[in-house]
Design a protein around this nucleic acid. Structure first.
Lengths: 164, 164
DNA sequence: TATATAAACTCAATGATTGAGATGTTCAAT
DNA sequence: ATTGAACATCTCAATCATTGAGTTTATATA
């Protein structure tokens, strides 16, 4: 029996065929997540940072402009103890990426702001991610892009709800 | 001027409106990735494991059935040093989740197999993820699901290529 | 004024990870 | 056969991020 070496260039391409099931999605999502983390880790190493530091920078970068980023917020978002957050911010501040600013109204809280090339650094950390995303986006129509964005939003909301 | 508090229940819903841009996608993807990691970390903690151990279990779970999982493979996939991989596998083996088996043909290499409740544990680690995914999937048509699967596949391929 | 709660920090202990090197294995060349 | 290079994994001491308990400073409540 000769090898049936089929090359599925672009699965789920046509309108026909079966719809992908949960298991398929799970694998696809896990794979993407793993690739993400690989990139993040690679970037971190390249800049003498730790994965935690990069995650913190992302959290600060993507924070809702209305919501101030505080050590406490990082604690719950990154699942760290307060000691770990302090150490992480010490590293980022010493490296000149962020700056701690005491809140004038409630002097217990500290706000984290970008300093120096922090924002630029955070953005550049996703240059490779952006490149990949762009490449993938180019192969979808506007209509399809809207569909995917809708799915990603739904997933984000669901996962957010799940973790509470 | 009264607050214009619009509530965008489900953005990108209609066929009209502008197509989402790269920046929008970047934020959505980063958000989802962060939520993933939160879930993974939570699960790890719940089972007395480390994030690294969970990532290893995933890697073993999702490995191409044809490709055997070896410490070396984990080393490059999880970006660890060989010492860290050994320690990780020691923990997983001692806990009875995996088993090391020397390859009969090339006695230098070790194959990692599930042992005891390892596979079940790995699967259960994604129960919450599966729940969220299912909920999100339910709100898309078969056609849309195919589109999203196509995007996820493209992203996975692009990221894979990027990290080399 | 006292008391409770809160946010962030300190610091010693823990333990995962690193990095250099050891061990055992395969393969090609001599 | 024997030597030597490449390889996969493991060992182990040192490093360093993280933990966990407790401290400090500030706010809110009675």
């Amino acid at each position: 029996m000769p090898e049936q070496h089929e090359e599925p260039e672009d699965p789920w391409k046509g309108d026909g065929g079966p719809a992908p099931d949960l298991q398929t999605y799970a694998v696809l999502l896990r794979r993407m997540n793993a690739e993400f983390n690989r990139l993040a880790q690679h970037f971190a190493h390249e800049h003498g940072l730790h994965l935690t530091d990069v995650q913190a920078l992302i959290e600060i970068l993507d924070a809702d402009p209305g919501t101030a980023v505080t050590p406490g917020r990082l604690r719950e978002r990154l699942q760290l103890t307060s000691g770990a957050v302090t150490a992480c911010l010490d590293r980022l501040e010493k490296a000149g990426h962020v700056q701690r600013v005491r809140d004038a109204r409630d002097r217990r809280v500290v706000h984290i702001h970008y300093a120096g090339r922090g924002r630029e650094l955070a953005r550049s950390s996703f240059r490779p991610l952006a490149r990949s995303t762009e490449a993938a986006m180019r192969r979808l129509s506007d209509d399809e892009l809207r569909t995917v964005a809708r799915f990603l939003t739904l997933m984000g909301d669901e996962l957010d709800a799940q973790s509470r």
